[in-house]
Design a protein around this nucleic acid. Structure first.
Length: 595
RNA sequence: GCCAAAGUAGCUCAGGGGUAGAGCAACUCACUCGUAAUGAGUAGGUCAGGGGUUCAAUUCCCCUCUUUGGCUCCA
């Protein structure tokens, strides 16, 4: 594919750039179509995205309907067929401003003002459409072959909620129709494994208007998984010397004033409750409670590290637009811990935390994640606790552990907690944008605010350092992740229904009941489907809805021989074996938490 | 919170100013069945809620709630 640079050079597009250029050019193509249909349209930014492009446009009071989007798409197709040449030109700044001003492009005009004084200002023209742009672009409009407008939404000018909300029109674009179709197929598959959809199908959780939005409730099947996860992580933690505690979901406002959360995050907390002249809030996090547990008695350096852990209920007032099933609600259970260490234990302890994350990810087969070292923004004096030396020490401590462990990570400015830098492990859901699964945060700040101490080897008082960490993040969110990763086909140890017993006819119900009982006796989660239906019908439901790892087909043959016919959910394979043999197999898999 | 779209049976969805529709699920009956849907029948609804227009509203208009997508936010 030929592309044209802003200086007019035409060249072959490097293979790895093809999609990006194509998508960026498709954004221009769409803008041209919009301009033809709505001449009053004023364009802001219109970049390429991961799979396509968008353009933010100010349409005044006009609202676009789905039909309007189809009309825009049709106009785009028309323009590609017009075979318009795409040509760049460069203007000095004053002429550039003049051109944009004449064309009533007020966002572009403002954009010029944001550019570096010596920046070269280039434009691309196709037909009567001119866009300020650095390029490169395709050389003719008909190079764009496979695209689709996917949706519209609002987006703030310069991504700032104080600015005007513009109409963002999103689309996807590919080099070929086949790739576009492939993409659409993948999207459909992603929607099918959305945890909200599977959660409904399998009866894992629900929500109800009367209970309140963002407040999901776990149903028996979902809570079974939840409890398995809780037992699993607590077991891991116990082996590493964590001590579990239980603290209340409500705390006095004074507690959060002391911690600094009141000043920094009050707007994300449910408003206070006044009783007997005191104010209380639903807690949004557990650090202050755990600080108070540490502070309740004196500590020697010999005791450190002290690892206080809790699977704790938290409540955060998330804005309504961000709620998403059990991935992000207003109530969740954090797999939280606060580790109190001496400064020279930081490195070893962070390494232990990272080791635990690795261990857990291995157990769940999680491989598709991204590590981020979240740093403060030194210019943001409002959000971050002000102490440069503290920040520098904490940030470089975390960085050096990551480097030591040879972990790939990116650094992101302005992503730190107000009290310290974080190592975040981020993953992507089936639908929607990336979120943090695990986190490990270094904190020199809260121990000071709570005046925490330990006695060092010289008998002097010292301030400990706190490591905040969450491995499964919140159990709710982790469950959402596991649902999507497995498409509801959980490993046996997690599956809400582990074995489904399917008699071939009613004649075999009695034997099937006996088999069911034998499994119940060894605590296997088993259900007998003795409905008067054909075995194929029962299999379909057990496979597609229950997603039971094992189905036991029991007919005359099995009854006579005292065996079970085992059908595997994942392979569809059928194997006959003795009941005892099956019991041993399934209990072993549960015990070993086999994938 | 903001910008859009949507809300009809338990689920997935069709419909449309004049008695509310289908498939699946549920229930009943028959069949007694061998690895992803046996057949017949029955029941199931304040068409999210409230207000308005109209002889008549589930349908048109307004408000509210919830859901979905995008933006902002995410300790």
């Amino acid at each position: 594919m030929k592309i044209i640079y802003k200086d007019g050079t035409v060249a072959d597009c490097p293979a790895e750039e093809v999609n990006h250029v194509l998508r960026h050019s498709t954004a221009h193509l769409m803008a041209q179509a919009i301009q033809r249909l709505y001449p009053e349209a004023d364009f802001a930014y219109g970049p390429a995205t991961e799979k396509g492009f968008y353009y933010d446009v100010d349409l005044g009071d006009r609202k676009l309907t789905d039909e309007d989007l189809l009309a825009i798409e049709a106009e785009m197709k028309k323009i590609t067929k017009e075979h318009l040449p795409v040509r760049p030109f460069i203007l000095p700044r004053d002429e550039a401003v003049k051109l944009m001003h004449e064309r009533h492009a007020k966002y572009k005009e403002e954009h010029i003002g944001d550019l570096a004084p010596d920046a070269e200002i280039s434009f691309y023209q196709q037909g009567d459409y001119i866009d300020m742009c650095v390029g490169p672009h395709v050389t003719y409009t008909n190079a764009i072959k496979a695209f689709k407008i996917t949706q519209q939404g609002g987006a703030y000018w310069k991504n700032d909620s104080r600015n005007k909300m513009l109409t963002r029109i999103n689309g996807v674009a590919f080099a070929s129709q086949a790739e576009l179709e492939q993409y659409e197929k993948e999207q459909e598959e992603a929607r099918a494994r959305d945890h909200r959809k599977i959660g409904k199908e399998m009866g894992l959780f629900m929500s109800d208007d009367l209970v309140g939005k963002g407040l999901p409730m776990f149903l028996p099947n979902g809570y079974t998984i939840w409890q398995e996860l809780e037992d699993y992580i607590k077991g891991k933690e116990r082996k590493l010397g964590y001590q579990h505690v239980m603290t209340p979901c409500v705390g006095s406002v004074n507690l959060y004033i002391t911690s600094g959360h009141w000043a920094h995050y009050r707007k994300n907390m449910f408003p206070p409750m006044e009783v007997e002249g005191e104010s209380f809030v639903l807690r949004p996090m557990n650090c202050p409670h755990h600080m108070m547990i540490y502070a309740s008695r004196p500590h020697s350096y010999r005791e450190l590290p002290i690892r206080i852990a809790e699977v704790a209920h938290d409540f955060r007032f998330e804005s309504s637009g961000t709620l998403k099933g059990i991935e992000r609600g207003r109530h969740f259970c954090q797999n939280d811990s606060h580790i109190f260490v001496t400064p020279d234990q930081i490195e070893q302890e962070v390494k232990q935390v990272v080791g635990l994350i690795n261990d857990v990810y291995k157990d769940f087969g999680i491989t598709d994640y991204r590590c981020v070292l979240s740093l403060r923004d030194p210019n943001d004096t409002e959000k971050y606790y002000q102490d440069d030396e503290m920040w520098n020490t904490a940030e470089s401590a975390l960085r050096s552990v990551l480097q030591d462990l040879k972990i790939d990570f990116t650094e992101e400015i302005g992503e730190a907690a107000f009290y310290g830098p974080k190592l975040d492990v981020n993953v992507k859901p089936a639908v929607g944008s990336e979120y943090t699964l695990s986190t490990c945060q270094l904190d020199f700040c809260l121990p000071m605010k709570f005046d925490l101490k330990y006695i060092d080897a010289e008998g002097k008082e010292q301030t400990p350092v706190v490591i905040h960490r969450a491995i499964l993040g919140s159990l709710d969110r982790f469950m959402a992740y596991i649902i999507e990763e497995t498409k509801g086909k959980f490993p046996v140890w997690l599956a809400p229904l582990q074995v489904k017993v399917l008699p071939v006819s009613e004649k075999n119900n009695e034997y099937a009941a006996k088999v069911t009982e034998a499994l119940e006796k060894v605590n296997v989660r088993v259900v007998l489907d003795d409905r008067n239906e054909k075995v194929g019908y029962k299999i379909r439901e057990a496979q597609q809805v229950d997603r039971a790892p094992y189905m036991l087909i029991l007919g005359a043959k099995e009854e006579e021989a005292g065996t079970v016919n085992v059908r595997s959910r994942d392979t569809g394979e059928q194997v006959s074996m003795g009941l005892e043999e099956f019991v041993a197999k399934v209990t072993k898999e549960i015990q070993e938490k086999a994938h």
